[in-house]
């Protein structure tokens, strides 16, 4: 009884330390855990993989540093996938604090595959007013993005020669830490029939499943787990795969905490009821 009471009133700092240990140990020793690819991620992969040769893939960076561990691994895996298949990634940014993250990943992966800026890929950077912009791209992308992230006119880059609106974009992929993905679905998807795949932070993912069920998006990559599945699919295991063992151990620990917490709560409640002379 005493142990249960102690567990119910455990110092939260002890819980923090235990969680830290449970996360750090698997990260160091890297035990291999099987990663099963789920249907939404498989479909996200297929949507990219089955694009025609030389396809233009628009990637929207709608997150910032706070969501980096969840979305950056997917961005890198996705860019690798695009460059492996000789597609043309066109990077745009809706969250201005995310701009350096997109640029960082694009430059790193493009260098790995010896791709040339302006010919194989382009970074158009950030523009304000995303709703008007999403509608505007449906007519002419140059209305909003007449220059790239360095301020150079896009006319000088061959990759942009034949890109004017959604008709010239084979797939739009939004990396989302908020509700911007829903706006892509609302405007680019519903109004212009743009094919869309969304990759979301785990917090936002449940809000996008109904788009996947209704067919409004072709694939869904949720959180670091989704990124790990994508890394497996492109055969480039990296940080997300390395983090899955730690994720599993931490989840097991949290389940144990919840079970113990509930047992302690009910035992304590029963004890109090007995002390009051109650029966419940």
């Amino acid at each position: 009884m005493n142990i249960i009471k102690k567990l119910a009133n455990i110092d939260r700092r002890i819980i923090f330390i235990v969680i830290a240990i449970v996360v750090i140990i698997p990260l160091i020793f890297k035990p291999k855990f099987p990663i099963v690819v789920s249907e939404p991620v498989q479909k996200a992969y297929d949507a990219v993989n089955n694009l025609p040769e030389g396809a233009n893939v628009m990637i929207s960076i709608d997150y910032d540093a706070a969501s980096m561990p969840e979305l950056q691994p997917y961005l890198e895996a996705l860019l690798s996938h695009c460059f492996m298949k000789d597609f043309h990634p066109i990077l745009i940014v809706q969250w201005q604090l995310g701009a350096p993250l997109g640029t960082q990943a694009l430059e790193k992966i493009a260098a790995e595959y010896n791709k040339e800026y302006g010919i194989d890929y382009i970074n158009l950077g950030y523009r304000p007013g995303y709703v008007a912009q999403m509608v505007g791209i449906g007519r002419e992308i140059r209305t909003y993005f007449n220059s790239d992230y360095k301020g150079d006119l896009i006319e000088k880059y061959p990759v942009m020669n034949n890109i004017h609106n959604y008709d010239d974009i084979d797939l739009l992929i939004g990396l989302e830490a908020g509700a911007t993905g829903q706006v892509w679905v609302q405007y680019a998807g519903a109004r212009f029939d743009q094919r869309i795949v969304l990759a979301l932070t785990a917090v936002s993912a449940p809000d996008a499943y109904f788009f996947f069920q209704s067919g409004q998006i072709e694939g869904l990559v949720g959180g670091m787990k989704g990124a790990a599945e994508y890394e497996i699919l492109v055969d480039k295991p990296d940080m997300a795969v390395a983090g899955m063992a730690a994720q599993s151990f931490a989840h097991m620990l949290i389940i144990l905490f919840i079970v113990f917490g509930n047992i302690a709560y009910f035992v304590d409640k029963r004890k109090k009821n007995k002390a009051k002379g109650g029966i419940k």
Partner: peptide, 16 residues
């Protein structure tokens, strides 16, 4: 459940 996963992912990212 997804929120717990998200928070742990952020912790993993930092520790990594």
């Amino acid at each position: 459940g997804y929120t717990v996963m998200a928070r742990i992912s952020l912790l993993i990212g930092r520790f990594y």
